[in-house]
């Protein structure tokens, strides 16, 4: 019974001959749409992905600036190895939060006007 189970490590998948595994990008199931024109859903995805990439670029710039402040020189491997400490992470998070707020600030507009009684 449960206590005396033997250890096994069975699997449904066969070896893939040592080839690197590529994980699927898209989920099985219907892709959701929110706009009457599906092209708008695509454009929204492009924008949000670009917003992310710019945020990543900003983080890279910040890493470079901090390394320059500290060492006066920057080496690629130092950038790659750089991980912010807790206090710095809090600062970066506040910056990302404000940045996302600015990019999508039009989303606040209607609620703000309604709150103000317009």
């Amino acid at each position: 019974m449960a206590k005396a189970r033997k250890k096994t490590n069975g699997t449904k998948a066969k070896s893939n001959g040592g080839q690197p595994v590529r994980l699927p990008i898209h989920a099985k199931g219907k892709r959701a749409g929110f706009y009457r024109d599906p092209a708008n859903d695509q454009i929204f995805s492009f924008i949000i992905m670009l917003t992310q990439e710019l945020s990543v670029a900003m983080d890279r710039i910040e890493t470079i600036e901090r390394l320059l402040d500290k060492n006066g020189v920057v080496r690629r491997k130092d950038i790659e190895a750089y991980r912010p400490g807790d206090a710095e992470e809090t600062e970066r998070t506040a910056r990302r939060d404000a940045y996302i707020g600015r990019v999508f600030q039009i989303l606040h507009e209607e609620a703000e006007k309604l709150e103000a009684g317009h």
Binding site: I48, Q52, V56, E80, T93, R96, L107, H108, E110, A111
Partner: peptide
């Protein structure tokens, strides 16, 4: 990698904005 870490952090913040800040706007509307 450095950039992957910051991609992950962006998503965490984005989700917080969506679930807290923008969710509040939607409820107001």
């Amino acid at each position: 990698t450095h950039d992957e870490v910051h991609r992950q952090r962006f998503v965490s913040v984005l989700r917080k904005k969506v679930l807290v800040d923008f969710a509040k706007d939607m409820k107001t509307v």
